[in-house]
């Protein structure tokens, strides 16, 4: 890794670890010794959002050309969010693309992602299905997002009804993840979800 990138990452890791947010356990970063190019980040879901209570893991890949190019970040934890792919975890956030600025650090990136969770931008979606739901049926979106947070990110708002529906489809022989995705995409309409899965 280029000299400048390595130096910077080390300092930024220190910055993250010494930051107020890290002390309050809101953000966290882990890295293998001697390799700063592949990092594991973690953020908590911001309060008063469907993601509250969840801990979301991130995969951060720091390019050779850092800080001239942004780090590549994606969600490892599955999440239901208009700007994050529910399948791959890819993030659509301007500062990770063309609006990247060299003055930004890992800490600001993590905080930006937290802010993204709190304030989605459905008009510039990564996941069109979620975005459509976000706009057309916001309550359904919140219910789904909460459910996903609970299931994948360790949230604590259990929703028996949705669990039941997932179980119903899983019993038909489908993978649980696929079942949940299908159900989420079809607004928890079991029949429609099955149709989707079959096709």
């Amino acid at each position: 890794m280029a000299n400048i990138a390595a130096g910077r990452i080390q300092r930024e890791l220190r910055e993250v670890m010494n930051s107020d947010e890290a002390i309050k356990n809101q953000i966290k970063i882990e890295f293998p010794i001697d390799d700063y190019s592949e990092l594991q980040g973690e953020i908590i879901g911001p309060p008063e959002t469907p993601y509250q209570g969840g801990r979301f893991k991130l995969h951060i890949k720091v390019p050779e050309t850092y800080p001239f190019n942004p780090p590549q970040v994606k969600f490892v934890t599955k999440i239901w969010h208009p700007n994050i792919s529910s399948v791959t975890g890819a993030i659509c956030l301007d500062i990770l693309k063309d609006q990247w600025a060299a003055a930004m650090t890992l800490r600001t990136v993590l905080l930006s992602l937290q802010a993204l969770l709190a304030d989605a931008e459905p008009d510039d979606p990564q996941d069109a299905v979620v975005a459509k739901q976000y706009k057309d049926d916001h309550d359904e979106y919140i219910r789904t997002a909460k459910h996903w947070t609970t299931v994948y990110a360790g949230g604590n708002t259990k929703n028996q009804e949705l669990e039941q529906k997932v179980k119903q489809i899983v019993e038909m022989g489908f993978e649980e993840t696929c079942a949940r995705e299908a159900l989420s995409s079809s607004c928890w309409d079991v029949a429609k979800a099955i149709e989707n899965l079959m096709s």
Binding site: P67, F68, Q99, W100, A101, A102, A103, M104
Partner: peptide
């Protein structure tokens, strides 16, 4: 180096 590929200030101001 930065301004070779970017138009705007590296701080994002």
């Amino acid at each position: 180096e930065w301004l070779k590929t970017n138009q705007y200030c590296p701080t994002g101001c």
